[in-house]
Structures are given as structure tokens and as C-alpha cells.
């Protein structure tokens, strides 16, 4: 069941993803997760490498990557804003929050602003239902938000160079 992967690989920053990892059957998703956490998304080159390492076809790996909403197949913005659309947050004003942020940034959820600064996403539940509505910016969770308090968080990031 275990295949050892000894690889130092080609091309871009996707290099070395497979180095030193026990390529057990089923390692495709962990590999994708590694790439995603290093590059922020799954580049075509990285996908090719994973396919080679796992002995799968590129299309199979692409099929897997597109099934899971965690994986991005194009380059995301520098800041990732996730707005919780779990039941609690939805009922507690999450929808309004989302609409507000969407308007502020001028993008629909799932998109990235033109200056590649912000990506906006929704998430099913961040597990902070008692603090609804909740939003996560680059992994930091903010709860009990109103559109205006969320806006000030955004403004803070915006002021960065």
C-alpha cells in the first residue's frame, strides 16, 4: 500500500511537495492541501506533479480538487475574507453582512478583487455559532459583527501598503 516518493522536482514553487512524504494510497488530498497552503492555490504545474507522484491522471486530480471547496484553482487575493453562512449566522445577520462586504469590495462571493488584494468567500459554518454573525479574515475570526464594524476591519487592511 505504501509507495515511497523520492523526488526533487521541476519548475516553480510547487517543488518538493512530495519530498519526504510517504505517498500512501489516498495521499492525493493531503498533497493538494500542502500545495494550497504553500502557494495559496493549486497551480497547473503543481497539479501535474501531484498526478505524476500519485500515478493518477491530471484530469483525475483536477476532478478531486474541484470537488472540494477548500481548493482554489486560480490565484487568490492577498487577504481572504470568509463570511459564515451557517444557520446561526444566516439568521443572525450573516446575509446582510455578506451583501455589505460584497458591495464594499465590489465583488461577488467566490471572486477576487481586481487589485488581487481581497478574496471574498462564504463558508458553511465556522463553528462559532454563538457569536453570530461571524467573519474570518486571513484565519482570524471576528464575531458579533455589524456591517459597520466589519467595514472598519476591512478599512484597516485597506490602509496597509
Amino acid at each position: 500500500m505504501k509507495k515511497k516518493a523520492a523526488r526533487d522536482t521541476t519548475e516553480d514553487g510547487a517543488q518538493e511537495i512530495c519530498k519526504g512524504l510517504d505517498l500512501e494510497e489516498g495521499a492525493t488530498i493531503p498533497l493538494l492541501q500542502r500545495v494550497q497552503s504553500r502557494l495559496g492555490y493549486i497551480s497547473p504545474e503543481a497539479l501535474r506533479e501531484i498526478a505524476e507522484a500519485m500515478g493518477l491522471s491530471e484530469s483525475e486530480v483536477y476532478g478531486i480538487a474541484t470537488f472540494y471547496s477548500e481548493f482554489k484553482l486560480s490565484k487568490p487575493g492577498r487577504h481572504l475574507i470568509k463570511i459564515c453562512m451557517g444557520t446561526s449566522c444566516y439568521l443572525g445577520g450573516g446575509k446582510k453582512l455578506l451583501e455589505h462586504m460584497s458591495r464594499e469590495l465590489g465583488i461577488k462571493p467566490g471572486r477576487t478583487t481586481e487589485d488581487e488584494k481581497f478574496s471574498l468567500e462564504t463558508v458553511a459554518c465556522l463553528g462559532c455559532c454563538s457569536k453570530s454573525p461571524v467573519m474570518a479574515v486571513d484565519g482570524v475570526i471576528y464575531g458579533g459583527l455589524s456591517p459597520s464594524s466589519a467595514e472598519s476591519i476591512l478599512a484597516h487592511l485597506e490602509s496597509e501598503p
Partner: peptide, 15 residues
């Protein structure tokens, strides 16, 4: 392969 999920599923190739 099947790509994407749910109602958006189509049959396609990598990228």
C-alpha cells in the same frame, strides 16, 4: 473525470 460538484458537475479534463 467528473469536475466540479453538485449541479455544476460536468465531465471534463484538467483545467
Amino acid at each position: 473525470s467528473f469536475v466540479f460538484r453538485g449541479f455544476d458537475t460536468v465531465i471534463g479534463t484538467a483545467f
